[in-house]
Amino acid sequence: MATDTVTPTPHATGKPTEARHATAETASRTTVKVRALSREFDGRGVLHDINFDIRDGEFVALLGRSGSGKSTLLRILARLDDEYTGTVQAPKRPAVAFQDSRLLPWKKVLANVMLGLPTRGVDGTETRARAEEMLAEVGLTDHAKAWPKTLSGGEAQRASLARALVRRPELLLMDEPFGALDALTRLRMHQLLRTLRQRHRPALLLVTHDIDEAILLADRVLVLTDGVLSLDLDIPFPVVGRRRRPGFTELRDRLLEELGVADDDR
């Protein structure tokens, strides 16, 4: 699945557009459709002929070593980079959660969550209520009026998640959002992400270098090796209790191998 045949696209047709070509043979509805995507930086190829889909509500993890082009791919999907060739169909305004929480330090937490939300209701009361609700979902009600600099790393990431989800995005892009957190906080963030996903159901692309994180959370794993999608694998486990499933270790080894790392503890 999802490794459809590549429809050749005439390259160098100027700026990429929303629907440079359309092939609608996929069974379920897709949120993201990437075809023949390549990206160069000063003549150095970073992404080569990338093809994949993300279906509505699907959770895809993108694994890769540093420098493999993961972040470049995410930036293209986030529409922060349009200097590519090929076709990318993605929602117009995906939400992004960055590795650093990227809260504006001069705005209090609630104002950060409300950033860019259209003002609704009298004096924006409706917008405000929505933002407060979202903060409650991530358990930060008490910190609504706090300055971002006073938050812990985990709290800041939760605020960042609230800001991303408050706009009810069709697509949520996450760039190693838990990479800088300690192991315990990361586990709690995983749990929170599962809950939020159940409730909001966005299509999700999680860029990570943590294999366990990918297997524990995602429906599908993509591996990017030197700018090429080298693996596209469904995770055959139900949502919970994955670590104890038979086959977990094998899957983990398989992905480790794909990333070119041998597990000493084998």
């Binding site: 922060l80 995906p94 992004v96």
Partner: peptide, 8 residues
């Protein structure tokens, strides 16, 4: 970047 993704 953040401002761009937040649609400001």
């Amino acid at each position: 970047d953040l401002a761009a993704t937040a649609g400001l």
